[in-house]
Design a protein around this nucleic acid. Structure first.
Lengths: 110, 110
DNA sequence: TAATGTACATACTAAAAAGTTACTAATGTT
DNA sequence: AACATTAGTAACTTTTTAGTATGTACATTA
């Protein structure tokens, strides 16, 4: 999800542009639990490919929602954590989540 | 944004699938103010094409977030309104919106 | 008689997002 | 020497989403 150069029409538009995309919400949500390494994220976000994980993390980083810390070791070690701005989004995701939970229970979705 | 048949991985995933897409958030948000006709929506959602407006409204309708009421008149008249489920999303959008507002002000985005 | 208004539909194209497959670096371990 | 480990990359294809351009119905109004 590219969001540079595009015209932002309103706050809602801007907000959705920053958290849109197939995996951003899930990534932010699991990072709510604390710092995670790349491989841990990969296991947590079931179904994501390394390409999409890296790509999405880079977008989140550029967007200052996630912080990336590289350890100069071999084998490599990279840790990801929410930034302050990223943490501010958690209540919002939580609200969507509880709405979704409700909906899924009502609709009996497996 | 198609979301049938796909695997839903968690509540967050499900939630984002239901409100994802370029215009859904904005449409729900303007409908918060009350019932709107097709043409009014078109004017409210600046930049949307009739194709995308219709398509998105149909998705929202199929998803039971928006209700569509057709008057059998000529020229045609169709009204759109939030359903109960749709209204339940408003606080959530409001939260994203206020986060976005904050961000935009901090970053001095026009 | 022709234009106007309204809510679309249809066919097609372009752009964006996501997926697939294969590959790398450098050290420690067997 | 071969192998495992970790966090990715690169090139390419497919799928999905969005945009463009044009057309339709039909009562009312000019």
């Amino acid at each position: 999800m590219k969001n540079n150069k595009e015209i932002v029409h309103c706050f809602v538009d801007y907000g959705f542009k920053r958290i849109g995309g197939k995996y951003k919400g899930r990534i932010l949500w699991v990072l709510k639990g604390g710092v995670l390494r790349y491989g841990e994220l990969k296991r947590a976000i079931v179904g994501i490919t390394p390409k999409m994980l890296t790509q999405t993390l880079r977008e989140l980083e550029a967007d200052e929602l996630v912080h990336r810390k590289v350890y100069l070791e071999v084998p490599p070690k990279v840790e990801y954590a929410l930034t302050t701005t990223g943490k501010e989004l958690i209540p919002f995701i939580e609200q969507l989540r509880s709405w979704a939970k409700n909906q899924m229970e009502q609709k009996n979705i497996t």
